[in-house]
Amino acid sequence: MATVTSGQNWFASCRLVFEYSVRSVFIRKASWAGTLAFAACLAILFPFSFGTELIQKAEIRHGAFWAINEFVVALTVGRLFTTEAESGILEMMLAAGLSRSAILFGKILFVVLYLLSVQLPLLAVWIVFYNVPNAALFSVLPTIFPLLLLFNLGTGTIGALLACVTARSTGRDLLMPLLFYPLQLSVLLAAVSLATYTDPAVVMLAGTQGSSWWTLLTGVPVVFLALGVLLSQALFQE
């Protein structure tokens, strides 16, 4: 691992945080595999909750995929910064003069790619277990990758901000979902609507408003990232 020295440039700091996060998760492969297994379990449990007939409906099918995503997101976001805080690496980074915004960006980048690494196999599981028809598959596949990236970006930004806010609080497992879900609601709504739009089996009352949803998906991370940069001094207290 690169030595922590003061005055490293911003991108190097970002990369340092990203690399550390990746190593701390993938050094114990069970962590990533466990998350994937958890998501796969949920994907199997949903048909039992709704019934296998109802799960064939396009809206329920898409809704189930994003609901499982939300559980995965809660697991990921709840563990942000815990390894750094426990091992003292975060204090070291701050003492070494690493830019606080770089730490935040590095962590957000990690969340985006980590979530994607779980979502892509989950997508395969979803296609198989939910009998996604070819027509729906071919219409959703072109948009799913940018959609997942933007969803993860919005989620990661809000999650990273809140992970910093709750870093010195007890009962984080309760606090994080309580704070996170209301703030992330608009990102979820946008992702579900855009994914459901593409399915030819879904009938919408009004005309498509895809551009509004894409605007929201790009706007939310920008707004929260800007807040994160402005409040970075308060977010990372030494």
Binding site: S186, L189, A190, L227
Partner: peptide, 22 residues
């Protein structure tokens, strides 16, 4: 933390209103 959450709460209100409206 309280101050940050107060700011996030206010910023979130118009975003949620806009998204639920669509």
């Amino acid at each position: 933390s309280g101050q940050i959450v107060a700011i996030l709460a206010a910023v979130n209100v118009p975003i949620v209103y806009f998204s639920v409206n669509i």
